[in-house]
Write a protein that binds this DNA or RNA. Structure first.
Lengths: 291, 291
DNA sequence: CGCCTCATGCAATGACCATTGCATTTCCGG
DNA sequence: CCGGAAATGCAATGGTCATTGCATGAGGCG
């Protein structure tokens, strides 16, 4: 979907909300429709319910709260909007495979990354990179399967020469870490699909202690958006049950590239030091000479 | 669909026809798939049958004649191709950003992922997924920044219901783990850019103990290729100093998608158990009502 | 024209779908 | 804290789905 189309789609959907709003589970369904429009276009109410962690009846009732007779009626509208947001291509994609789950997964990740490229406001990435570069230290909060993105970001940011640590090992460590956060620090909260309570608490706590807070997420969760100075939205719609971390990893990669450009001399020196250490410890396998 | 995309789609479909061809009604179904790809992407077999003037059983049997298990399997492939044909032009046509490091990084990751989609031999992913599903247990070796990919793969494979562990914390732990590897196990070595000596040793050792060894890497390293039954090549060229893990993450995602399809009942039960546990521990944030 | 093979329709079957009434849970306001 | 209203889950229900065995029809060949 194009950026303008996405705004229009979201505006349209939010206009249909009842005046008193929606509570917990129904709101989760709406967020899922917004963050996974492709799935919403095809999936059964049962599948949507499973992904959103609600009962199938709630999907039906949410559709009705939005002014439709039921799920099929809502889905028809969602599908039409989703398809019309895709423009007719002028260049054929090269199609591979026979529709296996793995090839579908790769294709979906490609689509998500294309969307990410179109949507990304690089000033936000620049803001975050500069905040990290200027920070006393940076804490990245990421748990469960999101930990991978947090770890990669922290590891490479450290290689780039900055004091960045990822907290991925549970609530106790997170609480201990956040209790030391102060003004001058940066906290980056990474959360896709389902939002951990502890992540929200950490973001709010860090903010109230004067740290700058940023979020990398796949849905416009008000709880996290309220806590964060900037939010990076990343498509994370995956094949089957699992959200895809490919877009998140690409954002982590982009952030580090931007961070490395803030002070090239500092980053260069840090990398040289790391390389010297690798050589001293004999960590790397000697590649045979190219034939 | 564009003319060239239609030719490719049509070529693909006609290649799947049985050698002796199709007669009357089945041929009408195929013509309908070609002439109304959007309907083919969404409609039930019953609706297609009605439009084509055939019995619903003929739709199923035509799908089977084309090499699919049934209508849903064929439709999934048709849908993926139809959507790709709509969005592919966007992948190729739109270029964003003014050359900042972050936008160059995102762009490069998109190109890498497009390359990965074109090159990927999905039979290799299927082989690995089936090996993991049949294994006594699976060990993923990934260190340094590659740890992120290993952790994500292990975490999601466990969610899918399989005994998979990642070793990411250094040589001592790796040695201890490999010393327990035996026939019936699987070892997946993940290594990009620079190849850790310990990774090569672990792969060789596991192989000599009778385990099946697979590698996910960005270069055709003879040392690792010799040790591995199959090698998945992933473009990992990143912006600036750092290799990009985006392609690696996409492959991990694809593997888990394939793994989840090996025994859907097992994976479904595992996910249900995990969800019940999340609910019991009150881990997930309740989203507030949307205003 | 007759025979044989393959294609196709009919109908039974099991699975999944969406909806809704009732009971329970949750949230908000006093 | 309590009560009431709304949200939500459970389960029953009727409908639609896709598949497949059996019977019949169609087409091709001798």
């Amino acid at each position: 979907m194009t950026e303008r189309a996405a705004d229009s789609f979201e505006d349209w959907l939010r206009e249909r909300l009842p005046e008193r709003g929606l509570r917990g589970k129904a709101a989760a369904v709406v967020e899922l429709l917004l963050s996974q429009p492709r799935r919403a276009s095809f999936a059964s109410a049962g599948e949507l319910a499973q992904v959103a962690g609600v009962n199938v009846a709630t999907v039906t009732r949410t559709a009705q709260a939005l002014g439709f007779a039921g799920w099929p009626a809502l889905q028809l509208e969602l599908r039409a909007r989703y398809l019309s947001s895709l423009s007719a291509g002028q260049v054929a994609a090269e199609h591979r495979g026979n529709g296996s789950p793995s090839s579908r997964s790769l294709r979906r990740d490609l689509d998500s990354l294309a969307l990410l490229n179109r949507r990304m406001d690089e000033r936000v990435l620049l803001t975050i990179a500069e905040a990290v570069a200027a920070a006393r230290r940076t804490v990245i909060v990421a748990d469960g399967s999101y930990a991978a993105v947090g770890l990669a970001l922290a590891h490479n940011a450290r290689l780039a020469g900055y004091p960045v640590a990822a907290v991925t090992a549970g609530d106790a460590e997170l609480a201990n870490t956040v209790s030391t956060v102060a003004a001058g620090d940066v906290l980056i909260a990474i959360s896709f699909w389902r939002l951990y309570e502890s992540t929200v608490l950490a973001a709010n706590e860090a903010g109230s202690r004067g740290a700058r807070v940023f979020a990398i997420t796949d849905a416009a969760s008000p709880a996290l958006a309220n806590a964060a100075e900037e939010v990076v939205l990343v498509p994370a719609e995956g094949e089957a049950f699992f959200p895809s971390l490919t877009g998140g990893m690409a954002v982590a990669q982009a952030l580090v590239a931007q961070l490395a450009a803030v002070d090239p001399a500092r980053t260069g020196a840090s990398i040289e030091a790391a390389e010297a250490m690798w050589a001293r410890f004999g960590l790397l396998h000697r590649r045979p000479a190219t034939p």
